[in-house]
């Protein structure tokens, strides 16, 4: 087998096994969006008001609206968690091992990224299955078409995590990342409210949300679930990925990045 593929498959397999062994991480990843779905959706429903916006063809309930955003949330958490574990857990050692491989660094990091994305996609599908159990059923083909969307959005969010792990030393723990990355990205996006709804309270808020790459990840997922391609969102997500991954590579280049990190 090709040497590059051999390494990539091994990295993905290892991540999957690690994931299976960490059942608590899996549960946490599922409980979070389910709490939103079951508890919050009921309370927020009234505030939304109903209207038909693309890609929806009929009136939808709030639970249905937030499902794509919660898929994005799963990937956002997963992206941050898997790259933070690189820096602060025992995973630092495994990263060191990875980087002594003679394969090109960008390939190794990309494989690592892809491994995290594979895990996040698994989580999303389990979440969608449970949501279906609660009666939130999406178009059948949507479950298949969302796969490429999840791949792209997962790569983008994972690359952001990788970038953070390689550069920002102040974010010493997960709480810091929650406060300064995950919460702002999630709340200032179209995950909980459509952009037109944001504009009602403030156009500045709407503009911020429209710039947020997470908004585009969510919209890409949302449209795919309803069998449509949101080209603008795809473009945004791909561009963001290119920028995040490019900068992460610089961060992991030994002549710039790792060097300045404290001893691990």
């Amino acid at each position: 087998m090709n040497l590059y593929l051999t390494a990539m498959l091994a990295i993905i397999r290892r991540e999957a096994l690690r994931f299976i062994h960490q059942r608590s991480r899996f549960l946490a990843a599922l409980v979070r969006p389910l709490v939103w779905l079951v508890v919050f959706a009921a309370g927020f429903r009234a505030a939304l008001g109903l209207s038909i916006i693309p890609p929806y063809q009929t009136y939808i309930t709030y639970e249905v609206y937030i499902v794509p955003g919660l898929c994005g949330m799963i990937q956002l958490f997963n992206g941050m968690q898997s790259s933070l574990s690189l820096v602060y857990d025992q995973e630092m050692g495994s990263m060191r091992l990875l980087l002594t491989s003679p394969l090109p660094r960008w390939w190794l990091l990309f494989s690592k990224l892809l491994a995290g994305v594979a895990v996040s996609i698994l989580q999303v599908y389990v979440f969608l299955a449970i949501a279906a159990g609660f009666g939130i059923v999406l178009p059948l083909a949507g479950y298949a078409l969302v796969l490429p969307a999840l791949l792209v959005s997962g790569l983008m969010l994972g690359a952001l995590g990788l970038l953070i792990s390689s550069t920002i030393r102040q974010l010493e723990n997960f709480a810091g990342v929650m406060n300064f990355v995950i919460f702002p990205m999630f709340f200032l996006s179209s995950a909980l409210y459509p952009l037109w709804k944001m504009a009602e309270s403030s156009t500045l808020l709407r503009d911020i949300c429209a710039w947020n790459p997470f908004t585009h990840a969510v919209e890409l997922i949302r449209f795919a679930l309803y069998l449509e391609l949101n080209g603008l969102a795809l473009l945004w997500v791909c561009l963001s990925f290119a920028v995040f991954f490019g900068l992460a590579l610089v961060g992991y280049d030994p002549s710039y990045g790792m060097t300045r990190r404290r001893k691990g």
């Binding site: 390494a7 990295i11 290892r14 050692g93 495994s94 990875l98």
Partner: peptide, 30 residues
């Protein structure tokens, strides 16, 4: 280069053979 770092870098929940195979794959050996 073969290297053993000061801090252990092991996957504790996997078998010895799996740890070995993972590393072999990083060198393109399968």
């Amino acid at each position: 280069i073969g290297v053993v770092f000061q801090q252990p870098t092991l996957d504790l929940d996997m078998s010895v053979a799996m740890n070995m195979h993972y590393f072999a794959a990083l060198h393109g050996i399968s």
